[in-house]
Structures are given as structure tokens and as C-alpha cells.
Design a protein around this nucleic acid. Structure first.
Lengths: 176, 176
DNA sequence: TATTGTTATACTCTATAACTATA
DNA sequence: TATAGTTATAGAGTATAACAATA
């Protein structure tokens, strides 16, 4: 049996604070990326991931894994970025099935153009009121949470649908 | 001049940890709400906000303020919820312009149905590795950040577009 | 005139399923 | 058969602008 007793008020407060801060920060960053470089958040994430990779190259599948996208979702984003000349796509030499996405000079340029503002927003909204000890504490605590999340079992072992039973009430087939 | 020097690695790590944890948590909660009650996150937020209000009633504008929605976005969500019989809408008695959204019994029922799973997810993914001291630290630190965000000036005083100049490169007119 | 809310419209993002091609 | 990726399709969410009605 799992515990479903209500959360105590302090726990709830901590959870809400996290959600609130994350949402506000995400929103501000989204604005900044759009204004400074015409980028959406997922596009920025892809470009930033590529910039981190050797030669600015990455296989589609590897990108998708790191960014939690479905493959079709990534295909969509990659197509947008290719259309904007920020990346190129080419099939891999060693495995014809794979597609290698490569950051173009223009893509790097956009990233450079956008970074200062990105940093400025993070600093102004998030870092300003934090001292070194706070930074260390956040990193430690959230690091533990992250580890927990990565190791926690999914909620249901499998979509387990008893043979022949119809979809459950309130269920739709459009998950993430 | 604002500071746009790169973030030091520890600051960056803290920021990324926050983003990561928030994203994973949001994703898990989204799944749970859909599975247990057929609710989307914004719908749940609206229902929960209403449940907190006296008599389960709230003006559209007040709802929008608390939830960062544009008015049209809230109209859309309210229409969805009304269609599902989870809320009703009626114009206010004292001010004919205002619309009062009210939680129905069915809406309350869905909320009750969904809450245990919601709590379970938060507890399992977020609270498990945290002691009382951690909870207190998070609340304190993120509380300060939140206050900072709420008081921080927006990035640009106004959309300032020099008279007659065309839209800038990379700019699209589909903001949030 | 200012405020409240809705409507029309357009666009982004995401997912599922079906499909192609290579290993 | 399994893996990599694309395409077609569908739907949710959101915003902007124009609009109607009330204060």
C-alpha cells in the first residue's frame, strides 16, 4: 500500500514554492529566448545540447533520449531548425539508418546571441538573492531528489489492460 | 549595464538541478492527473483554486491573475470544464460584466478522486529523500527567490519598437 | 473611457499509428 | 525481427486582436 495521507503543510509549502519558482523562471526564459533569438525553449535546448557535443553533432536518437522527446516530436523540431538553417541533417556513414544532426555556424551564432540575455535572466531572477551556501544547499537537496526520481519505479508497471477489457473511463490515448 | 558574464559552474549546476527536478515532477504529475481523473494540469489548477475559495466560487479575472493565464486562455479552459460539468459559469449579481465560476459537486468529486494519487506522486518523487531540515531550507531559499521574481522589473520597460521600424530579424508575433 | 469576458484565428508542441529503410 | 526516422493525423494549449456589454 502506498501512503496517500494528506501532506503536512510544510511539505506542501515547499512543493508549491518549487512549482512556482520553476514556472515563473521558465516563463521568463521563454520570453527572453524568443525576443533575443526567435527561439522556442525546445529549440534552444536542442541547440545547446548540440553545442555541448564534440563537433556539434549528435544522432537523433541520442538527442531524443537526453531531451525526453518522442521521436516524432524531435523530427518536428529538427525540421524547424533545419528550415531556419540552424542545423543540418545527414545520414550517418557507418549506419545508414541513423541521422546526424549538426549545428551550423548560423546556429552557433544564434546561440551566442542569445546566451548573454539568458544568463542575465537567470542571474536576475534566480541567483540574486542566493549566497554560496544557498547554492550549495539547493544543489545538494535537489540533487538527491533528482536521483530519487531517476530511480523511482514508474507508477504502474505496465499499461496493464486486462485482456479484452475496454479503455477505462477518463482515459485518453494521447499521453506524453 | 547588466552583468552577462558566464555563470560559475556551481551556479549553473544549481539552476540545472532546479529545472530538471521541476520538469520531471511536472511530467509525472501530468500523467497521474490524466490517468486518475482525465484532467490536464491547467484544469486541475483551476479546480484546486476553486476548491480553496469560499463556496468554491471565483471571478474569471481573479482566477486568471492567480494562474498566469491570459483571459482568453482561461475562457478556453473554463469552457472545457463547463462542458465536462465540473464547473458552472454565471454572471455576477453585483457586476454584470463579471463571470463567477463555481465548482460543481462533480468537480469536487473529481478533485477528491485525483488527490490521493497526486499526493502519492509528490511524496514518492519529491519528498522521499528529504528530511525536515531540507524542507525548511527549500522553503526558505525558494521563498526568497520567489519574492525576488515578483519584485524584479520586467526585462524591457515596453515592447519599444522605434516608430515606423519593421519587425526585427528573428522576431515572430506569437508570444505567450 | 476603462473593465470584463468571449470569439475568431493562428501557431506551437506533442503524441500515436502506420510506414519506409537499413541492420 | 529489431532499430532509426519520417509522415499523417489529431488534439491540447496559448496568445493576439477585434468585439460586445457593462460600469
Amino acid at each position: 500500500m502506498t501512503d496517500t495521507t494528506p501532506l503536512d503543510p510544510r511539505q506542501l509549502t515547499a512543493y508549491l514554492a518549487l512549482k512556482d519558482v520553476a514556472a515563473l523562471l521558465e516563463h521568463a526564459v521563454e520570453q527572453q529566448l524568443k525576443e533575443d533569438g526567435g527561439l522556442t525553449t525546445p529549440q534552444f535546448q536542442i541547440l545547446a545540447t548540440l553545442a555541448d557535443a564534440p563537433d556539434g553533432r549528435r544522432r537523433m536518437t541520442d538527442l531524443a533520449d537526453g531531451l525526453v522527446y518522442s521521436r516524432s516530436g524531435l523530427t518536428y523540431q529538427a525540421a524547424q531548425l533545419e528550415k531556419a538553417k540552424l542545423v543540418t541533417r545527414a545520414s550517418a556513414e557507418d549506419d545508414e539508418r541513423s541521422v546526424i544532426v549538426t549545428l551550423t555556424d548560423a546556429g552557433r551564432a544564434v546561440l551566442f546571441k542569445v546566451m548573454p540575455g539568458h544568463i542575465e535572466v537567470v542571474r536576475r531572477l534566480f541567483l540574486t538573492p542566493l549566497g554560496d551556501a544557498d547554492i550549495a544547499a539547493i544543489t545538494d537537496i535537489l540533487g538527491r531528489v533528482r536521483a530519487q526520481m531517476r530511480s523511482a519505479p514508474p507508477r504502474s508497471a505496465k499499461p496493464r489492460r486486462t485482456t479484452g477489457s475496454p479503455p477505462q473511463r477518463g482515459e485518453r490515448n494521447n499521453g506524453r
